[in-house]
């Protein structure tokens, strides 16, 4: 007798739990304001990444086309993946001293894991992360970037 009672209550309890589950989905079915989907290319204009978002490494240049990289190569040393290559030139200054300046700052985005060690260890804060996140390109070669702009030079206060 007990087992029959359990059987019947079991049915009702089971159906009750199922209804409870359905109430959750049912609630969301009518609450269209709860939708979390973002329509990506449409919201591109107002889509703002967080300030600290690690999109890719960039080298900020100021208005006079000056950057802050001395070409010391600490970032290159610290990069675990070898995604940074700092190529430097030796020049002789007007005073006759030989001096190292940055020639090309090559950044392989395809190898970067965004660990942030380069930005953190840079002694002259020459590099930073940008909020750019649309990295897709059709050609892998395009992922190798030269960060210092054409004709740019070291900012004065570090150069002295």
């Amino acid at each position: 007798m007990k087992s029959i009672f359990n059987y019947i209550t079991g049915i009702f309890k089971g159906v009750w739990t199922l209804l409870k589950g359905m109430s959750v989905t049912g609630k969301y079915f009518i609450r269209l304001d709860k939708i979390v989907t973002q329509k990506y290319p449409e919201n591109r204009k107002k889509l703002k990444m967080y300030d600290r978002f690690k999109g890719e490494v960039i080298m900020p240049h100021d208005a006079g086309n000056y950057h802050r990289c001395t070409g010391c190569g600490i970032c290159e040393l610290n990069c675990p993946n070898g995604s940074i290559e700092v190529l430097t030139d030796k020049i002789t200054t007007t005073e006759g001293k030989s001096k190292r300046i940055l020639d090309k700052y090559i950044y392989h985005l395809s190898m970067c894991t965004f660990c942030g060690l380069c930005v953190k260890t840079c002694p002259s804060t020459a590099i930073a992360f940008s909020q750019e996140f649309e990295h897709a390109v059709f050609d892998r070669q395009k992922l190798t970037k030269v960060l210092n702009k054409q004709g740019s030079s070291l900012v004065k206060d570090i150069a002295e």
Binding site: Y50, R52, F53, K54, T113, F114, C115, G116, L117
Partner: peptide, 23 residues
């Protein structure tokens, strides 16, 4: 993401402390 700039692979806790301060 707001604090560390990444969502999954943070590399935020480093020997000696943290990479940088929290947001």
């Amino acid at each position: 993401e707001e604090s560390f700039g990444s969502r999954l692979l943070h590399s935020f806790i480093v020997p000696g402390g943290l990479m940088h301060d929290i947001h």
